[in-house]
Write a protein that binds this DNA or RNA. Structure first.
Lengths: 155, 155
DNA sequence: GTTGTTTCGGAGAATTTTATCCGAAATCAT
DNA sequence: ATGATTTCGGATAAAATTCTCCGAAACAAC
């Protein structure tokens, strides 16, 4: 039912980058602060997304990360295969190592159709689409700022 | 997409008990060895299922665990609420603390219907049904024994 | 009562996941 | 060149999950 934090951060970050003008590197620091996630941890995730061929990275001044050409068409499934590991959609609900049509757990038959729906949704949703949904202002990528709930703290 | 190991063990164990004659306590040791899960860890989980009012426990000789009266009608949703914690079906895919119809992540709208399907499936599947499915022999609760793959080891 | 069995409950170890730190390499501006 | 900035890569720490151990309490059989 739940993605790892790593996956959540990765998807959030990628969508965020997709909302920015393409080609202009975005700083890890900026992404982390916008999403309100640990910068050093996010940096690790960004690294692995680079190795996964979704991002370009640039060091030094004017550095940062930006989407590889065409990466806007990347669907969530591809991203999650990177972050959750292959076969994350094949895992048995009850944890059986082998659970196929041939030899299945008692949930298998009813679970498969749902799994299919999930996969097709994940495959349908691309960074482009999600970024656009955010840009309309109808959907949000981050929690409402804490400042709305907590009193202002001056430095 | 995945349940915690704790949840998987809990569900497996409960289904197993449901396949046994009601009222006759089943030993933790027996469950653990049948399911091939760590006995001491399973024992902890069994304890929490007792506290969750699904099981009776008996100490000493003729001891063990058995389903509480009517617990065969328990659906998976109830069990998972115990083991995963309340609101495990409400969590946002992207990890937002608040993600409702009012203020949502870009996946929310498409995700909600799937979540509903999952919940209704989990609510539909009771220990009784699952146990019966196993008893027909058509579905399995455990992995195929390793002895089928590994050479026999004599003691 | 004594013995053997089984769960209970608490403490703690091992593993995995999440998060931090820091020196080094790359890059740009001066 | 020098300095400022930023990612890279490795080591390490913290937290959560999974797993183990052990003494105590409850229970049955003798």
């Amino acid at each position: 039912m739940i993605l790892s934090r790593t996956s959540q951060y990765a998807v959030q970050a990628l969508i965020f980058i997709a909302t920015r003008p393409p080609g202009e590197p975005v700083l890890n620091r900026e992404i982390a602060s916008y999403l309100d996630v640990p910068p050093a941890y996010l940096a690790k995730i960004m690294q692995s997304l680079c190795k996964g061929s979704l991002l370009y990275s640039f060091r030094g001044r004017l550095g940062g990360f930006c989407l590889r050409e065409g990466a806007e068409k990347t669907d969530l499934m591809k991203i999650l295969l990177l972050t959750e590991g292959a076969g994350f959609t094949q895992d048995c609900v009850l944890g059986l190592k082998v659970c196929s049509d041939a030899t299945a757990c008692p949930m298998h038959a009813k679970w498969v159709p749902i799994k299919k729906k999930v996969v097709s949704l994940l495959t349908d949703q691309t960074l482009e689409k999600l970024a656009r949904a955010v840009q309309t202002g109808k959907y949000r990528l981050t929690d409402l700022p804490a400042s709305l709930f907590a009193p202002v703290r001056r430095t």
